[in-house]
Design a binder for these strands. Structure first.
Lengths: 156, 156
DNA sequence: CTACAACCTCAACAATAGTTTAGGTCAACA
DNA sequence: TGTTGACCTAAACTATTGTTGAGGTTGTAG
């Protein structure tokens, strides 16, 4: 009945967090937290009543997940990266920093690709060169466009 | 039986194109061309034998679709953009240029966002500020993280 | 004329990233 | 004690972007 998404009133003293609390503080839906847990990106233990309990550290973990997603990294890869964190010690600032280094590289590449794309976009769409064989925009796909020798008429 | 994907031998004189020819020359699978047609991004007429026939112009159309996809634009939006092309006249270079102008803007924004993200990435993941309320990386989601007044202990 | 490659349709399946719903349990407040 | 809000699971559903398969037709080469 949608009540799941409204912030639960905080319990007496915040040693550990309920799923609703994590949702409220991380800005991520309860259903998404369940999902992340099924996918192995976060973990919880259970209360006597079988309710999820999270260490406060989960907030950073979720924050990092969301940030990584914004860079375009799929959850599966984020999971891999998170798996490199120390398992039985709370990750330190340096642990997190190391994590982000790899992503910075990926991000840089994506930015580069998009920048090239942008710089060629107008010119190449406007010119005649989208003919698959010659256009720098299209070239990556060119392998598939070959069809042996033979009179190849001027392309559209 | 996978034969669909091997380049068909070119028919005698290329006035119009079969789906296999378009696939070979555009580097896009036949199944994807069918799909684009179902989605209304391209159109064809039919031969006597009910086979698809495309105007040569479709090559540019498909090229543009693929390029736009690389910029991260979903097919639905590409469809909208293509719908702005003149319907009964073959689009001119200027038509295509206009089309790409809008996309250049979107691309620029995406590049900007990613660049900001990159610049903040290491610093923010490493520092304590991922606490959702103060981090520039997390702030966008902050709305959901509010939970009324009350003693808010130091976040993780 | 016979094969076989290329084509057709329709339906099911795939991966990603979740959300929604149904049916039930737990816990706190009055 | 009873009601309500938060929680539980499992399964089904959403959207996007196609691919795969089954079963049948067309068209071209020999």
């Amino acid at each position: 009945m949608e009540k799941d998404q409204t912030p639960p009133k905080p319990r007496p003293f915040p040693r550990d967090l309920s799923v609703g609390e994590v949702a409220a503080r991380s800005g991520v839906a309860v259903s998404a937290l369940h999902f992340y847990e099924r996918q192995g990106l976060i973990r919880s233990w259970r209360s006597q009543g079988n309710q999820r309990r999270y260490p406060r550290e989960v907030l950073r973990r979720v924050a990092v997940i969301k940030v990584a997603q914004r860079t375009g990294i799929p959850l599966a890869s984020i999971k891999q990266a998170l798996a490199a964190l120390p398992n039985e010690r709370t990750p330190t600032v340096d642990d997190w920093k190391r994590l982000s280094e790899g992503w910075r590289e990926e991000l840089n590449e994506r930015i580069l690709k998009l920048t090239q794309l942008r710089d060629r976009l107008t010119g190449c769409i406007g010119c005649g060169c989208l003919s698959v064989r010659e256009c720098p925009l299209r070239n990556p796909y060119d392998e598939l466009g070959r069809e042996g020798p033979g009179a190849r008429l001027l392309e559209d």
